[in-house]
């Protein structure tokens, strides 16, 4: 009974976020346009022919995650900042339990990241001539990356919404937390691009899942402290 009400509260928070986003489309526009603009600049200046063959696996996987991460940074912080700006945070505190708020906001960020990856990754492959041999491996790395990045972004967004100078603080607090994750995501993407075997991405995937899982569990425990402060 309690679990089902928690689930319904979480889904209600997610529904509120989606409705609000459909009306305003601020986060979607921010991450989508940031991603496309960066991709166009990179493709125009570097493109598929400027990188030497031996450097391609390293540079292309790194550039892809630089575009994805910074595009995500431009929109994911909004989930909590907008509640503080619109003075709706107090109402949300009364309306739903902290865990439900975290779950709803986390799922919303996950959906935003999935939309960003779906938009940018195929475009990047086409514009940069990035041939990925292990599509299943890449899909797994992207999925694990979205789960982990969404966890760190949601809790950091909650922290910075309670501080002044929020938007600049998001990047300052997020980057050191996700750097080890980005290193493993780049390595996993490189492995997926070079081999059709799923085993090639496993070492990186283990690291991504471990770090992402640890961040998610700790975030769930810390969120009530941040939210009720």
């Amino acid at each position: 009974m309690r679990a089902s009400s928690l689930l319904s509260e979480s889904l209600a928070v997610l529904g509120k976020e989606l409705t609000s986003e459909v009306r305003s489309r601020v986060a979607l526009n921010a991450i989508g346009l940031f991603g496309i603009t960066t991709l166009v600049v990179v493709a125009y200046q570097i493109g598929p022919y400027q990188i030497q063959e031996k450097d391609r696996p390293y540079l292309l996987s790194a550039l892809l995650w630089v575009i994805l991460f910074f595009a995500a940074t431009s929109g994911l912080a909004r989930v909590f900042v907008k509640e503080e700006d619109a003075h709706t945070a107090k109402t949300l505190r009364l309306a739903a339990r902290p865990l439900a708020v975290f779950a709803g906001k986390y799922l919303f960020n996950l959906i935003l990241l999935a939309a960003l990856f779906t938009l940018i990754v195929p475009l990047y492959c086409a514009l940069m001539g990035y041939e990925v041999r292990g599509l299943a491996g890449l899909a797994l790395v992207l999925a694990a990356g979205a789960v982990a990045l969404s966890a760190s972004s949601t809790i950091v967004a909650a922290i910075i919404s309670r501080a002044s100078g929020s938007t600049t603080l998001f990047a300052i607090l997020s980057v050191p937390l996700v750097l080890p994750l980005l290193v493993m995501l780049i390595q996993g993407t490189r492995a997926a691009a070079g081999s059709v075997e799923l085993a090639a991405v496993l070492p990186a995937l283990q690291g991504i899942v471990s770090l992402g899982g640890a961040l998610l569990i700790v975030s769930v425990f810390l969120f009530p402290v941040v939210w009720h402060e």
């Binding site: 309670r162 501080a163 603080l169 402290v225 941040v226």
Partner: peptide
């Protein structure tokens, strides 16, 4: 320290920076 500087209220600063420290320790 950037986070600590950005929160003027002492209690809130302490809670938020404690939460961030625990989160950072995971990495």
């Amino acid at each position: 320290f950037a986070l600590r500087e950005a929160v003027p209220d002492e209690e809130r600063r302490a809670s938020l920076s404690a939460a961030y420290a625990i989160l950072a320790f995971v990495t």
